[in-house]
Simulated assay, not measured.
Amino acid sequence: MKRLKLFIPLLVFVLLAGFLYRALYQDPRTLPSALLDKPFPAFSLPSLGENQQTLDASLLKGDVTLVNVWATWCPSCHVEHPFLLKLAQQMGVRIVGINYKDDTQQAKQWLVKLGNPYQATVVDETGDLGIELGVYGAPETYIVDQQGIIRYKHIGVVDERVWQESLLPIVKQLQAKGDPS
């Protein structure tokens, strides 16, 4: 029994080393989401638009949609914004924004000044929708299918490489599934 107790520290060390080794080789942008393959969380929040209408999750049904979590205080959001404009204006990608824990007036000014890639923007001033989505910070982008089901989550800037390698293949696959022809 005494000899067995001598091996306990070694066993603990091996277990910890195994966890650390595994963590070193994981991509931090591929954090798993508990919401994958589940409906987008229900919400009823104001629009960032001039009419101040209330938006809900029905906004995300009908077409494959990129849902982009952004804020004016987010430096990475400034980096990805021109590419989102390109996706929306030149490629016709449907993007819905979630303005996350931000000043509404600054967000409106930003979209006027830099252009608006969003078909609609939801104001999540308190961050409650972000909490339900499991948002770690901005920017984060979700791919939502035609039925409002979350199919993919990307953490970080969406740029040409991310679009071509990660997002576009999923969007094309989902569009093909939803196309009745």
Rank of each mutant, 00 (worst) to 15 (best):
L11F: 12
F40M: 08
I8S: 09
Y25V: 01
T30N: 14
E50L: 13
V12I: 15
E132L: 13
D103G: 06
E132D: 14
S44R: 15
R161H: 13
Q173H: 12
V158I: 15
L36K: 12
F40C: 10
G178Y: 01
L24F: 14
Q105M: 08
H81Q: 12
K108T: 02
S181D: 11
Q26M: 08
L45G: 02
S76M: 12
P46G: 07
K38D: 02
L35F: 05
V123H: 02
L87Q: 07
K61N: 09
D103V: 14
L48P: 08
S58C: 00
L59Q: 10
L168C: 00
D63G: 00
P46F: 03
Y136V: 13
N99F: 03
F40S: 06
P9T: 06
G49E: 12
A17C: 07
L55S: 08
V64P: 13
C77R: 04
P9W: 02
F13L: 15
K113P: 00
R22T: 12
V122G: 01
Q173A: 15
I149H: 04
A57M: 00
D102F: 03
I150C: 06
Q52L: 13
A88Y: 06
K38F: 01
L87Y: 05
L16N: 00
G92Q: 10
D179Y: 12
D37T: 04
L111E: 03
V158H: 08
E165M: 06
I150A: 05
V79D: 13
Y25I: 04
D103M: 07
M1D: 09
N68I: 12
T54W: 02
S181M: 03
L111G: 08
R151H: 08
M91G: 02
Q105A: 14
G130S: 09
K5W: 15
K177S: 13
L85S: 11
G92E: 08
Y118N: 02
S181A: 11
D124A: 09
D159R: 04
L15P: 00
T126W: 00
R161Q: 15
D128H: 11
I155E: 14
K153A: 12
L85F: 06
V112N: 13
G156W: 05
Q109I: 09
D124E: 12
T54F: 05
D56H: 10
T54N: 09
L84E: 05
L168Y: 13
R3H: 10
S76K: 10
W73L: 03
K177D: 11
L174A: 04
Q175G: 05
V144L: 09
G130C: 10
L36Q: 06
L60S: 03
K101Q: 15
P82E: 04
P46D: 07
Y142S: 07
R22M: 09
N51M: 05
V135R: 01
G156P: 07
I98R: 01
K38P: 01
L66Y: 05
Y118Q: 04
Y21C: 12
L84N: 08
F43Y: 08
P46S: 10
A120R: 10
V14S: 11
G97T: 11
D179C: 00
Y136W: 12
V123P: 03
A176T: 13
C77T: 08
R22L: 13
Y25L: 11
Q175K: 09
I170P: 00
V122N: 04
Q147Y: 09
